[in-house]
Amino acid sequence: MSEALAPAVLATPRRVTEEAPLTRYLLIGVAVAFLGLFLLLPLAAVFTEALGKGVGAFFATFDEPDAVAAIRLTLIVAAIVVPLNAAFGVSAAWAIAKFSFPGKSVLITLIDLPFSVSPVVSGLVYVLVFGAQGMFGPFVKAQGIQVVFAIPGIVLATIFVTFPFVARELIPLMQEQGTVEEEAALTLGASGFRTFLTVTLPNIKWGLLYGVLLANARAMGEFGAVSVVSGHIRGLTNTIPLQVEILYNEYNIVSAFALASLLAGLALVTLGIKTLLEWRYAGQIAGRRRH
């Protein structure tokens, strides 16, 4: 790595706005070491432990009915949560980015709130609302609906946790793009919805896609909030992360990490697509800002 690096750095004469080569190497070294230690090593550990007893043991994990049920539940939850939050994100970004109104920053802060609420609290609030001792607990029970400790509770907690992802990705992007193009389209007689479809959407599609991907990764991987509302019924209300915990607690370390590697793989694919998008469509993604 350093051999490939050396000529590239030395070939260009040093400019006043650059650091001495030694400083550069040092900084690059620090950054690589830090990222390696804190990010790559845990990732490597997941895959190493997953394959620790061979490929056979790895794939055997996915034959277990409980694991299959967990994967199915996770997909169902994501399939409900992600479109809802995407629709909300687009609509919130439209209202916030294309118009100016008082109290906008308060609104943005409130949208951000789920980012910094502890996942445990995110789960707890739904127990307080819909639990048997909660405000609407008796009501939903009278309707014969099970919310907490069933799929609806898991969906609600996941919506809460992934609530801001799409909106947060789109707001800065749409703010940057302004309203000129939309105004032009409207002047030419396009309807509002048509304007959105043909003018706005193409401008934000990659940002939207990345927001959706991040929301999806988080929705499939959420642990704390889901753990509080799940009830842990095997084959019924365990999502992949909960199943990982169960397997881990059953001394089934290989299967736990095998299932975990599925989520880690999803994370990698998410990041891969994002990098690809950034590389091809730089400027159409605001993803470099905070999430």
């Binding site: 990010l39 990764a217 989520l263």
Partner: peptide
């Protein structure tokens, strides 16, 4: 990665 990797993992 920490955004995308599930916390339990």
């Amino acid at each position: 990665l920490p955004f995308a990797l599930p916390t339990a993992v």
